[in-house]
Nucleic acid binder design. Sequence first.
DNA 1: AGGAGAAGTATACCGGGTGCACATTTGTTA
DNA 2: TAACAAATGTGCACCCGGTATACTTCTCCT
Lengths: 210, 210
Amino acid sequence: MDEPSGLRERKKQRTHQAISDAAIALFLDRGFDAVSVRDVAEAAEVSKRTVFKYFPTKEDLVLHRVADHEDESARVVRYREPGQSPLDALLAHFVAGLWNGDAITGISDNPQVRQVYELITGTPALAERLLRYAARGEAALTTALAEVDFDPIRPALTAAAIIAVQRTLSETNQRLITSGTRAAARLPDAITEAERAFALLRDGFGSTYG
Amino acid sequence: MDEPSGLRERKKQRTHQAISDAAIALFLDRGFDAVSVRDVAEAAEVSKRTVFKYFPTKEDLVLHRVADHEDESARVVRYREPGQSPLDALLAHFVAGLWNGDAITGISDNPQVRQVYELITGTPALAERLLRYAARGEAALTTALAEVDFDPIRPALTAAAIIAVQRTLSETNQRLITSGTRAAARLPDAITEAERAFALLRDGFGSTYG
DNA sequence: AGGAGAAGTATACCGGGTGCACATTTGTTA
DNA sequence: TAACAAATGTGCACCCGGTATACTTCTCCT
């Protein structure tokens, strides 16, 4: 579905890419707040107006890729193997993400990915926006869970807890990677922690705190 | 600790209050985005520069009160009755909040409180900022839990799940109140749901989703 | 070849937020 | 009581993110 390309489409995609690349490069070099949209426009050889035609806000220059994954958890639940439970499907998907170094698991060694992640978590405006996207993902997961559980509130409670736990796992991984741990060295513990976290969701936090 | 008042302090507090009151009144009347800081300054008979001396951002004109409660969950855990578990203490505190119509439980009938709540949830910029404050509250709760559980990650996971569940309960209450349900009529169900939610935290989501 | 419509530009504007220099007020000390 | 230092408030100019408008340039289609 991404190949109806006439010249116009190709140019658009190239401009989109050029603006995004210029922006990321500048942000990584000088920091998000120290770069103005005017700087990005000049670096991409485009007018400021055009930048805002491709990206609705300055934050989206960084977050537009991440935003695509916002309903990933919902899809994992909806299209899980028959007979597999939602929690098992989500755990399996998260562990697979760890093996692949997916950005959302916070464990990628890839310098580009790692730097962007640090840029986001180190910039309040970006971190805030990311939470908004996460909220949309949570709503989508709530909907997916509500398809198999007609309780009026349990799907929402469960989705909130799941998203929160996934975020915490990701933050923990990212903190360690940022402070120097290699992804390969982190992987075994990360998997163990993910399994423990989902076990807590399944069996409750009561054994320690209840 | 709030009474070292010379004239200077008293004037400051009065100005602070005047700006805040003028801002809330204007926001409730016309909407957050339709009121400029200049409008607030004029209504409070102060210069725009002074508004920003008292409130770092426009959003803080609304959120400064809410922000005070950011570490409430942490305090509840830290100063709970001897022998009481963290989850029980938090549930008891939440239920007490429901009875009192505390704003954070989302169940207040008080028009002022309700309108401000709706203003926040209905304004993306405000809702986003609120999430930032919630993140700080979550960090505080993590610290409090880590004082009784030396596991490297369980406190963070638990805190995240608890905050997420509380937020969901609050949102559910607020949605119903906004759509016309009276607080008194909502109270019994709200209490039941809170108890069920904390039971899920204690015993796990596995019985339905695991 | 030529026209409809998309993409891009220049310019001016608005509102949030800051830096700076100056005026006013308050607390203190002589 | 006079006078000075510090705190507080003001006015102004400025930067930046974001939008509206009117205009030019390009691509596509017939």
